[in-house]
Design a protein around this nucleic acid. Sequence first.
DNA 1: GCAAACTCGGATGATTCTTGTCCGAGACTC
DNA 2: GAGTCTCGGACAAGAATCATCCGAGTTTGC
Lengths: 160, 160
Amino acid sequence: MSSGVEWALHCCVVLTAADRPVPAARLAELHDVSGTYLAKQLQGLSRAGLVRSVQGKSGGYVLTRAPEDITLLDIVEAVDGAQPTFLCTEIRQRGPLATPAEACTKPCPISRAMGVADRAWRAALRETTVADLARDVVDDNGPTAFDGIRAWLTTPDGRN
Amino acid sequence: MSSGVEWALHCCVVLTAADRPVPAARLAELHDVSGTYLAKQLQGLSRAGLVRSVQGKSGGYVLTRAPEDITLLDIVEAVDGAQPTFLCTEIRQRGPLATPAEACTKPCPISRAMGVADRAWRAALRETTVADLARDVVDDNGPTAFDGIRAWLTTPDGRN
DNA sequence: GCAAACTCGGATGATTCTTGTCCGAGACTC
DNA sequence: GAGTCTCGGACAAGAATCATCCGAGTTTGC
C-alpha cells in the first residue's frame, strides 16, 4: 500500500479542524513531507470529490462533506485506486490443459475466494469515518488536541 | 498484490492432485508461465514449510500437509510476506506540532483502523483452505477435472 | 479595471520494488 | 561412482512508486 494513503488520511483528519481552505504546502509542512508530492495525493482526493480545491490567493483544500460521511474506504480508493487487491489473470485458460473460454462463465475459485477477502477488507474500511478518527485523536491526546492545529493552520504565513 | 501469489495458489491446488513430487518446470509449463520465476515463489512456499522440496532426478515439490490444513493466508504470507498492508510511519511525531514520543504509547488511530481492516482481510483468507478450492474446481468443471491434470503431471517427460 | 501574487493541475524525471533470468550446490538414479 | 536432474540463492531488466518542476487559473488588493 502506497504511503501516500497515510498522508491523505492524516490530511483529511486535520482538515476537520480547519474552517477555511488550507494550502497543500501548509499541510505538507505540518507533516514534514514533500509538498509537491502531497499535492498529487490531494489531487486524487479532489478528483474523487472528497475535497474541494479553492484557487487564488487565499485558496487551498476544504472537505466537501461532513466528517461522518467520509469513510476510510473513500480515501483509500481515491488515492490508490479502486482496483481490487488481487487481479485474476485467468491462467486457467493458458497452458496445455487450458480450460476452454466458454466454460469460464464465472470467476475461478481462487479469484472468488480472494474477492471475498477483498470485500471483507473494504467493508471494514467502510465502517470507520473521518469523524471517528478525529474523536479517537481527542481521546488519545486530550480535548485540546485540535486547538493547536487549528491555530497553526490558520496562521497567515509567518514562520512559527 | 504480486501476481506470484496467484501462481502459487494455483500450484498448491494442482499439487493436491499429484501423488508424487512435481518439478517447478513442469508446473510452469502447465500454467504457461516463467519457470525460473515460478521457482522463486515455490522457494517461498518451501521456506514457510507448506511444501517439501525433493531433490534429485525424480524430485520436485510435494505438499507437506493435508489440503484442508493449508489456508489461503498461509500461501499469501509465504509468498508476499506477512507484513501488514498498511505501514504506519509515525508522521504524527514529525513536523512543528509533533506529538511527543512519550505520548505515543499506542498506535495512532489511523494505524489502528487500518489494522482492523487488515485483520478482517486475513481472517477471511484463513477461512478458505486449499481443499475448499479443489472442491470448487470439481464443482465448476466436473468430477473428472483433476484426472487429466494428474495424468499430465505424472507423464514422465514426453512432450504432450 | 488592472496588475500582482498565490493557488491548483498536469507533464516530466529519479528511486525502489517487483518481475524475470542465470548458474552453482546437492541429491537421486543408474 | 559417474551422470543427470533437482532445488537454492545471487544477478539484471522492467514497472510502479516517489518526488519534482513549470504553466493555467483565480482571488486579492489597489
